[in-house]
Design a protein around this nucleic acid. Structure first.
Lengths: 193, 193
DNA sequence: CGATTTTTTGAATCATATCAACGTACGTGG
DNA sequence: CCACGTACGTTGATATGATTCAAAAAATCG
């Protein structure tokens, strides 16, 4: 049931079987169908999702109704609105499944208790969030210092499995472009190669 | 000497005087003059800086030689290239002082040892990095979903003390604009109010 | 004060967005 | 299993907003 989660956990912080048993009662599996929300704009985020199959996306909707994708979460990734979870304020994000998916849910209360109870859980959390921070900083840097084309190339190189599974207009949104522009970028790239 | 650092630490995780004594030997004060580097592009980042006075900035230089500011760090903030620090790879960032500054340096080795030795240090680190992650995600969201003008307004509202102390062209760089564009945005804003 | 940095303004250019139309693929229900 | 509807991608024409380059004005520093 939870093999994938613990496999990931053990790669970062090795656990004894007993420790796994401590964690297990706090976990919960859930299936999401394509387009089903995990978190909806306006609600308070009360849990994090670890994706074991399928893919989720996190996005905001701007004033003119356009979806801006902030993050994809495929197998092995976690997603949540930490800001909302920490402050208790309503989230500005939506998180939904873009494929039929299976996730492991760890709610806020479980996280707090596990962090307190099991030092390895805190260590795992710290290392996880540090990695997420580093990735985000790199992404922001790319946004500010690379051309659109370089950003697209970097994306498909870095996340080939996502690039192949996700509709192109979502990649455009993730890169901060309109679908039309990405389409043109691509045709320019193919013309040159 | 280290009051400011511990004051900040205690607000997040209260320490006993004995615990403070454990940490102290790992800390080091350093003064930086305006324009002095803390980290230079191509070097490996071996320490984090906690700013006690003055201000630092973190930036990349793009192919055409333009500086793109990724982050400001005023009093009470920390700055480092975590990616370089974790992987040991050369940094793509520069970090330098934009005012005469005083920082507390905690090098990688100190961080590793303190994290191991003192659980509260690990907790502090986790909470700190989580806050930084949340701030960065909000910033990325703003970049993708707000107009230039809204981003500028949000910036001066959120960081009034930085907005007042820093030259305008650096704010432009932080917001992903040219100085000319920011100047025009401002005159449009003042014209309307 | 003079030198340097910063900000402003103008004109031309460039990149991306927008709007609209079309073609295609896909999957769902009849 | 076919047909229809919806979602997706492409292409073209035009509009918009930001950049670039150049120069001057203003502010700051030593």
């Amino acid at each position: 049931m939870y093999e994938q989660y613990f496999q990931h956990f053990n790669k970062i912080v090795p656990l004894t079987p007993e420790e796994e048993e401590v964690i297990k009662p706090y976990l919960r599996v859930k299936k999401l169908r394509k387009k089903q929300y995990f978190l909806q704009d306006g609600d308070v985020c009360k849990a994090a999702a670890f994706v074991t199959s399928g893919m989720l996306r996190q996005y905001v909707v701007d004033e003119s109704g356009h979806e801006k994708i902030i993050q994809f979460a495929a197998e092995g990734w976690s997603v949540a609105d930490l800001y909302s979870m920490l402050t208790g304020e309503p989230s500005i994000y939506n998180i939904d499944a873009i494929e039929d998916s299976e996730i492991i849910i760890i709610d806020k209360h479980a996280q707090d208790e596990l962090t307190q109870k099991l030092r390895k859980f805190e260590t795992y959390s710290r290392i996880q969030i540090t990695g997420a921070y580093v990735a985000l900083q790199r992404r922001l840097t790319a946004m500010n210092s690379l051309t659109v084309e370089e950003r697209y190339e970097e994306f498909i190189k870095r996340y080939p499995q996502i690039a192949q599974r996700v509709p192109q207009h979502m990649i455009a949104s993730y890169l901060g472009l309109t679908p039309e522009t990405l389409s043109r970028i691509r045709s320019r790239m193919f013309a040159r190669s």
